[in-house]
Amino acid sequence: MHPLRRKRLIIIIAILLILSSAVGLVMFALQQNINLFFSPTQIASGEAPQQATIRAGGVVVEGSVKRDPQTLYVSFDVTDYQYSMTIEYLGILPDLFREGQGIVAQGSMMANGVFKATQVLAKHDEEYMAPEVSDALKNAQSKRVTVTESALSY
């Protein structure tokens, strides 16, 4: 073979080899590590697989958070306003976790219909403010008024 051709062939083979092993690696890793999302309704209707790692989410039901007095174990219900499901978690919940707040949990369904979470994520929406912010805003305003008042009285 012409030496230039041969060299090109070697380069192309090397590239193909690297690419194909990378593709194989990617396929393998993707198969292992993608997590489907299910809503409480989908889980109630039995769509979610058992024992597989999935994500589930909804709004935390008011008054449903129960804590174990000895450990960091916690359980709470989430709902999509149609069905609710119970999530159990051992660990520290995120700062933004609150009743009435949307959360996403990663974990798996157990045979008793409880979702065992390995990770709980809470999302905070920046677009619009939670109602409570108003009070704070008002407080800040009234505080400002009192500051000026007290400044005047001096």
């Binding site: 990378a22 690696l25 990617v26 292992q32 993608i34 994500r55």
Partner: peptide
């Protein structure tokens, strides 16, 4: 095909050897 997330394990598994 549904809503999924690709977690850190994927990236670790693929990225580290390369």
């Amino acid at each position: 095909l549904g809503k999924i997330s690709v977690g850190a394990p994927y990236f670790n598994a693929v990225f580290s050897p390369i």
